[in-house]
Amino acid sequence: MGRRENLSIHSDPVELRQVRSAIEAGGTRVGFNKKDCHAMALAVDEALANVIKHAYGGAADKKIEIEIEELNEEVKEQGLKVSIRDFGKAVEISKIKGRKLTDIRPGGLGVHIMRKVMDKVVFECPPSGGTLLRMVKYRRNEQKRKETTD
């Protein structure tokens, strides 16, 4: 099993920076390049922003739990898995979709960014309420190959 880090934050935008740092640190340990680490931090940041805006309606004092799991050599594929649990208004999973990029307007980009950056984006509605979001990004074979030839 890979290394796991659990973070518990309030739904306050000021706390998102520490999560971005933790994602980048985890990504670096797994071996992602800097660009992928930044992109994963962005995807997680967008997910958390959606929780704050939609699940908690902008309230800054609600709980969000984040688990960052480093998938390393001991498991089949290397990568980073991030789970985000909120206890707010459950999302209607069927209605979650990124807007069309040809529709140029402010907002609505978060889900598009999450899906573009991560390999897996899965929303679940636990029986106890709220939403659980699981996202995974695997290291690309090209990146692994490059290391073996360097």
């Binding site: 660009k35 922003a49 402010p106 907002g107 980009l109 960014i113």
Partner: peptide, 30 residues
Amino acid sequence: DSSGVATLVEALQRIQRKQGRLLLHSLNPR
């Protein structure tokens, strides 16, 4: 993040309605 991008998209649309231009420069790779 996307809230920053949304802010710039809104500013672009606002200034274009006034026949103005919004120009960005010196963006870092991130």
